[in-house]
Design a protein around this nucleic acid. Structure first.
Lengths: 240, 240
DNA sequence: AAAAATACTTACCCACCAGTATGATCGGGC
DNA sequence: GCCCGATCATACTGGTGGGTAAGTATTTTT
């Protein structure tokens, strides 16, 4: 492959974000962790671009200007690569929960803060892996682990909703179904955010929270909007 | 749509939902369309269970108690199989738009009706394929076709939102981001509905619409809930 | 300087799978 | 009885991609 190697004086490439650390590895940075991180990050980028199954380890290696066995030197399997990306993404959300736990504000405010960080995490480079890590693609052990982490987050959201309903800051609702709606909307960001980057992750999260909070129906002014008939009627043509 | 078809004396298997029509094919049922439908339906089920890439055509064939070439007799490629499943799912949503178009009710009501059918479609057997049909997995031509259909639905939702804002039935908001939030929440149903079937698709859709409409913040009573300080503060620990 | 650990590479294996060539079987029309 | 076309099976190919064996260069340790 490239076999560049020993490039001491030249290669003054400061540090391009997507570049490979092998380039300047001649000098220092004997740090294994740094390289391992680079491998995982490269994997995340490729998974994000082409999906897990359409990305080969040769692709990832090529992106790093290395060969496949080198990737295996830092990682034991492809599935571990996906798992690490997943954990990297999910960790941000767990931190958000921790940060918010001991705040003396209504539960709805705490929930909003978590959802904002959630949205940003999904829009991050690991967002795709976090959201799309399928249990089907992973060994039973890792599948269970991932499910457990996902469940933890899900129940964290439900808990905040429940607390909000109790302290009156959130409209009475079913915590489970509401949590699914909120998380689903945010998770889906990973699907379209690659192609439409007109907003930052924080802006999207903020806008979503605004939608969740206010709802579609107008508030205050214009209280009653034609309590029209209809409702329950467009049936028949639908029932496949 | 289903299989079955005159079941004379033998093969008295009443009618298992996931059964293969080949079973009794000994008699007649020379109907090509019926079998083709069964193939696509079986594919949808397998994709739903194990994902597109983890499902081989041998799996699908085995499920039908047939061999792979038989599947190819009714379908030209694996990607076409996915495409057909996608179209089957998306068609239900397009019908919902058509049904609702000429209704003399506020746009929010029309939107709700569409969203309800949308949710039911996602919870249907083709929901997974519709939602997860990745452009990455398909040829450029089919990818474009799918994107076009998805975009059509997306813009249909945006349009209803825009009309709702104009006729006053929907709170002023950004149609694009709001449509993403709504569609995302509904799309995500496909991810968890396989494991948690405690509710029907219609019930879920109804509950989601209620959340979208009302929002989290309580209405009417309890108007101001501790306009507390905080807000914008849990930073630093997050910026990874 | 020799030995050992580190960090890679080249070259390979092999399981799996989409897709196909070929041919068997069966029903119906003559 | 016989051909014909529709329907399906057996048996194969070709390519891809995860994973590995074994060797090489470089640095560190003793």
């Amino acid at each position: 492959m490239n076999s560049r190697r020993s490039n001491p004086p030249p290669a003054g490439k400061t540090l391009v974000p997507g570049a490979s650390p092998w380039r300047a590895s001649r000098e220092r940075l004997r740090d294994r962790e740094v390289k391992r991180d680079a491998v995982i990050r490269a994997a995340a980028r490729e998974f994000n671009r082409k999906g897990y199954h359409n990305t080969s380890l040769d692709d990832i290696a090529a992106r790093l200007e290395v060969t496949k066995p080198t990737v295996y030197y830092y990682v034991t399997s492809k599935e571990q690569l996906l798992f690490e990306c997943f954990v990297a993404g999910v960790e941000q959300i767990r931190i958000a929960f921790r940060d918010v736990r001991h705040l003396a504000v209504p539960a709805r405010e705490r929930l909003n803060a978590v959802l904002r960080h959630y949205g940003e995490a999904v829009a991050s480079e690991f967002g795709w892996c976090m959201v799309r890590a399928e249990d089907q693609d992973l060994s039973p052990a890792m599948s269970r682990h991932i499910k457990s982490l996902k469940s933890e987050i899900d129940h964290g959201i439900r808990r905040l909703i429940r607390e909000g309903v109790q302290d009156g800051s959130i409209q009475p609702c079913d915590p489970k179904i509401t949590a699914f709606a909120l998380a689903g909307a945010l998770n889906w960001i990973a699907h379209w955010y690659r192609e439409d980057r007109s907003l930052t992750g924080a802006q999207i999260a903020e806008a979503f929270v605004a939608v969740f909070e206010g709802g579609l129906r107008p508030r205050g002014s214009a209280p009653r909007v034609a309590r029209a008939p209809l409702r329950r009627r467009a049936r028949g043509a639908m029932a496949r």
